[in-house]
Computed example of a mutant assay.
Amino acid sequence: MNPTQTPNLPTQHNKQSVGYMYYVCDFTSPFNTQESWDNSGLNLGSLTQEFDKIYITLEVTHDLAHSVSPNSLIIAHHPLFFKSIKTFDTAAYPCNIAHKLIAKNCAIIAMHTNFDKSHLNEYFTHEILGFSHFLQDSLYCHGAIEKTSFAQLANTLKSKLRLDTLRVCQASESIEHIFVICGSGFSEITHIAAQNLPNSLLISGDLKYHDAMIAKSLGLSLIDIPHYESEKYFTQIVDSLLKNAGYQAIITDCKNPITHI
């Protein structure tokens, strides 16, 4: 899909309405492609309300809710609400953040797994990791490489990402096929291993102990890229898409909440 094209939008929505921007986002990265457990789309506000400013962020944080201007639209990668809530407790997350934004008449549109599939995963795989020939297939990019030692490949990735260390689970001495999933994708271990491709590797984030045990038993190697490191490019990609649509946005610097000491 060409993000520079102008979608056919309903005439009742003016260009400063949340509804118009919702359809721009949907045209660029269809919400109906999101995973069943996801909550992309309108998270807060109304399609009929208008906005003065657009903010782009990886995460809707307490600091952002405090600093954002009234009557703003926030386009976020991670939904503020993943699950339904029974009590809107303004002292607890995520309602504490939503409460501040409602008081400022702000809206949130989330572009999560739909955007992973349409833009983010390919960008990270092609532009950052350098596997430009890999193809996007559902949640992951994948492709074959010339047979390479696991250790050499891990060190190359560590250098490209400018990381001091990498968490890995090695199941074979060499790698010939790679799968890449931005964010947290180790739930796909059994599905990928079932493809029976020799010397396969899954690159993703948020590796758990039992994920590694399962992968090793199935002969699938893993490299754990920190969640933030694979998704931090969301803001610059969306900013470029909005500029093509004639909008200027404010990029917020959402830092990794996990640090090392």
Score class of each variant (00 low, 15 high):
Thr259Asp: 15
Ala107Arg: 01
Gln236Ser: 12
Ser69Glu: 15
Asn32Gly: 01
Cys141Asp: 02
Asn43Lys: 04
Ala144Asn: 07
Glu59Tyr: 08
Thr190Cys: 12
Tyr93His: 07
Asn121Arg: 04
Asn39His: 11
His210Gly: 09
Ala107His: 02
Ser46Val: 01
Pro198Glu: 06
Glu50Met: 03
Ser149Thr: 15
Thr28Arg: 00
Leu9Glu: 07
Asn96Pro: 03
Val24Met: 11
Cys182Val: 15
Asn8Gly: 04
Pro70Thr: 10
Asn32Lys: 12
Gln12Trp: 04
Asn244Gly: 09
Asn14Thr: 08
Lys53Ala: 07
Phe124Ile: 00
Ser159Leu: 07
His227Gln: 09
Leu64His: 08
Tyr247Cys: 07
Leu218Tyr: 06
Leu73His: 05
Lys83Gly: 01
Phe115Lys: 03
Lys100Arg: 12
Cys141Ala: 12
Ser36Asp: 13
Leu9Ser: 09
Leu207Gln: 03
His62Ser: 12
Asn8Tyr: 08
Leu58Arg: 03
Cys254Thr: 15
Val18Leu: 10
Thr113Lys: 02
Ala98Cys: 14
Ser46Asp: 14
Leu197Tyr: 05
Ile109Cys: 08
Thr156Ala: 08
Leu207Asp: 01
Phe115Gln: 02
Leu120Met: 10
Asp137Ile: 02
Tyr247Glu: 04
Cys25Val: 11
Ser29Cys: 04
Tyr209Val: 02
Ser149Tyr: 12
Phe31Trp: 11
Val18Tyr: 11
Leu157Tyr: 05
Ala212Trp: 04
Met111Lys: 06
Thr259Gln: 12
Leu242Thr: 05
Gln236Gly: 00
Thr11Phe: 10
Gly41Ala: 09
Ser29Val: 01
Gly183Glu: 06
Ser149Lys: 15
Asp137Asn: 14
His62Cys: 08
Gly45Pro: 00
Ile261Gln: 14
Glu50Asn: 14
Arg167Thr: 12
Phe82His: 02
Cys95Val: 08
Lys104Gln: 14
His77Ser: 08
Asp89Gly: 02
Ser40Phe: 04
Ile214Ser: 02
Ser72Gln: 01
Ala249Phe: 10
Lys83Trp: 06
Val68Thr: 08
Tyr23Gly: 03
Asn39Ile: 05
Asn2Leu: 14
His77Gln: 05
Thr125Asp: 09
